[in-house]
Amino acid sequence: MGVLMSAIGFGIVTASILAVSSVGFTLQFSVTNVFNLSFGSVMTGTGFIAYALNTSGVSIWASMAIGALCGGVISVALNWLIFGRFIRHGISRFGMVIVTIATGLICDNTIQAFVGPTFYAYNAQPGKAFNLAGMLLTGQELIIIVIAAVMMTATHVGLKSTRLGAAMRGLSVNASLARACGVPTRRVVAVAWFASGVMAGIGSVALFLDTSTFAATTGSQFLIMVIAAAVLGGVGSAEGAVVGALVVGLATEITAAYWNPELKDVVAFVVLILVLLVRPQGMFSQLSSERTAVG
């Protein structure tokens, strides 16, 4: 029982990090219909901005907040410089996937060229450990869980009960109809990219704290897990992404505890493939596959 509870504890921490990241990924996808494979690079970039702040004396949580804002700016800049232009240029959906991969590779390797192949670690104390019903969690991990819970609630309320949220949902269902109804498409799209970048930033600092060391490739490696959680829930569905994150997080940590830590990611991916075989659209997605990209 002790092993199971502590595995569930780790699973909830992993799921919190995954949930923030994959909601950011999926929110931007649902509004713009761009499958953004450079999301991992935005994560790495913000992680290193937070590292620069952190090593110059800023506390880790303040670094996370500033890093997240920078992530939002980077994300909007990528859309303004590259993605939006390609979409208005009339690129196909296949082409857009390749554009985001190319952008991600360029960003990752630019970061790598500056920071080198070494590993980095934040200057932060994990804090006192708490025992919650057998789950051993550090103060740091509890703060991560609280941040994730607050972010999820804010996203849910924002999407369901603000005008901006309504505009986003409108764009995700039918972009041209939303535009015809007077939704300022470009502005809403920019907000979606900003929100996605902010969540990438929070997710990356939380991830790098959790893994304790990180390098220039950590963000893009984690992206595969983020995509697994988002696709599992059904891309474009924020609630689905949270459930997907929980499934992936718990599956990986329980595998690590009971079977083989090296294969924990494989189990998560196999779960993803099995779910897609039964429900090809993911668990919660209601989006049609006929939509076109919006930039």
């Binding site: 990611d265 493939i273 897609l276 090809p280």
Partner: peptide, 25 residues
């Protein structure tokens, strides 16, 4: 099978990562 084209691409990406992890571990 009957996956959307972008999901297909993601499944294949995941297959690639699975293959590397299995071969390494």
């Amino acid at each position: 099978r009957r996956l959307r084209s972008d999901y297909q691409a993601m499944v294949m990406l995941v297959v690639s990562v699975i293959a590397t992890i299995v071969a390494e571990s």
